[in-house]
Nucleic acid binder design. Structure first.
Lengths: 339, 339
DNA sequence: TTGTAGGCGTTATCAA
DNA sequence: TTGATAACGCCTACAA
């Protein structure tokens, strides 16, 4: 059904190797033969069997990408960047989701490894998740690059953002608005949240506002989606205790959206009762009511850069490389929700 | 570096074929030998080379999935359903985005075909997009299943929703609220929008409200993201002409979100000035201000069902199958934006 | 400039 | 119950 090199060879009275060379534009083959072969191939819709090619060459021309959840604006934007570069570089990408679950993460790595990929771009669950598995990949000549969640022990290229700085500026902004009781809602053990918490604390410190552990909520992402409930419970609890915050800084895209939802549900006016700002890459920030103040990450750029770095490694597998950690800047978009 | 069947065979003084059979639990191999082989394999971290296996067997155990844009709640939810089933079925999925661009769609099909997939799940751009390419796949024994965009000429299983019904009920709801000047914003040539338009018209008809072409906007999705600008221009134009609608029904997830944004930008109060309802699967519908009334599609179910249907085809490639078209029901969620 | 032979890692067929 | 052999489709020395 599907035509192969041999078929072409037979039809043209050539050897399979000549056909192979002709299709690969080898200098050992005459122009006429090349033309003959290529025309025939085109006419008969010859498509090379990548599987066989891979088996022979060892190159799969595919890259594994492990993200925690692709239905997240931030992640989707990274993915867009990744895809742009992957197309230029003629690499296919195989996307897997870890859902912030270390078991699924390990499984994804395993699947990709079995299937054969030339490299792996991953946003790991946390500091040391799947460390041995990733190291094993590297030792087998499959380069790994970390993206977004760059606080990981693995020794390699890492592309993320300046989390401390982003959090610091957002918090500073709230402080500058005269807010005194700042709450921080974050995720537990997500690999980037520590730095954001540090930024939060640092901004408080510069304003001589003591950090109040009661105003910190670290949501658990390992279980199903109880996050919204956790947030609601915490806020209600603060209200009941007469400890209402006057501003909230949210650490991730997902948390920001959910917090907004909880406040709406509780009929808490934003920003008059509680001001809100958070990490968010939603393209609809301006369309929300009130328009959302956000720390925006250069997600598209991160995706592009991360993938480029990975391709570099793939292409010079055997040379010594000085690994870099790149932290891009975030942008602070002030809108109504924090004013 | 990586251990192969032969290595095991050599180490155990067996033949490669026996090792292969042992690992595949063939009945021709003795229990002791199996244990021997499996233990050795485990101990030495043997992982089978899927590439070689595929070359030999012709089965890739991977399925191509072509969607138009994965950073869309609705699509992301479908994808979740797809992934759940794919893991059960032990198939990998390779995700590609067509971005509602027929050239990219064709390219994606080509890539998947070259790379080798056992089947294709696709949400095609429109009625006849890539029809010949898809048919060619089928003729080469690679089954195709259509999802979401089920109004396509291809003869196969199709899994989508009852678009007419969903649109009809949403529009009917607006009519029941006493709305008279209903606007419909939709996408041009997206394969599902005709039926939604028909549902819109039918609901108007039952209320004896004439359909007004001026109150219809079909956005062009083939070019970059001018959609929001188009919507804004149209609404401003209607306002200027004193033709302000009193309600809007939006046909897709993306259009609903964007329309909401435009209305906010134009400082048009929802629902008092203009009521709004639209197809949307955003998990934050209740968290928007005002909470968004929406026609919700069973996206997760669609993904699951579509993938299941595809796997069925993959597994009985040579039997005659009676193709089905399945239209799941949508849910109407009435919230504040349309009241 | 073209062809031959061997092999990538696996499995299927047949023989032992 | 095990083993030898060939084959999947392609590429690459090396020979012609």
């Amino acid at each position: 059904m599907r035509i192969t090199l041999k078929d072409i060879a037979k039809a043209l009275n050539l050897s399979a190797s000549s056909v192979s060379k002709a299709l690969n534009d080898s200098h050992e083959i005459s122009q006429e033969t090349k033309k003959l072969v290529k025309d025939y191939a085109e006419k008969h819709h010859f498509r090379i069997n990548k599987i066989a090619q891979t088996l022979k060459t060892g190159k799969t021309y595919s890259i594994g990408v492990i993200l925690f959840n692709i239905s997240n604006n931030f992640v989707a934007q990274m993915l867009d960047g990744i895809q742009v570069v992957s197309e230029q570089a003629k690499y296919d990408i195989i996307i897997m989701q870890s859902r912030n679950n270390e078991l699924l993460e390990k499984k994804a790595i395993e699947v990709l490894r079995n299937r054969g990929v030339d490299g792996l771009l991953i946003s790991p669950i946390n500091h040391q998740s799947s460390e041995t598995e990733l190291r094993a990949l590297q030792e087998n000549g499959i380069p790994v690059v970390l993206i977004d969640r760059i606080f990981h022990n693995l020794h390699t290229h890492k592309v993320g953002v300046n989390n401390f700085e982003g959090a610091y500026r957002a918090t500073k902004h709230l402080v500058d608005q005269g807010k005194k009781r700042l709450m921080h809602i974050t995720g537990k053990d997500l690999g980037i949240t520590e730095e954001r918490l540090n930024g939060f604390k640092a901004a408080l410190a510069t304003a001589n506002i003591p950090f109040h552990p009661d105003l910190l909520l670290a949501c658990d992402y390992t279980e199903g989606s109880q996050v919204e409930i956790e947030i609601k419970r915490k806020i209600v609890q603060l209200l009941d205790a007469g400890q209402k915050p006057d501003a909230i800084f949210c650490a991730t895209d997902d948390i920001t959206s959910r917090t907004l939802g909880v406040l709406a549900e509780l009929n808490i006016a934003v920003p008059t009762e509680i001001a809100l700002i958070g990490f968010s890459n939603t393209p609809y920030a301006h369309a929300l009511n009130p328009a959302l103040s956000a720390v925006v990450q250069p997600a598209f750029e991160m995706g592009k850069l991360g993938f480029q770095k990975l391709i570099e490694l793939v292409n010079k597998k055997h040379q010594e490389v000085a690994f870099e950690t790149i932290a891009l800047d975030t942008e602070l978009h002030i809108r109504k929700s924090s004013l």
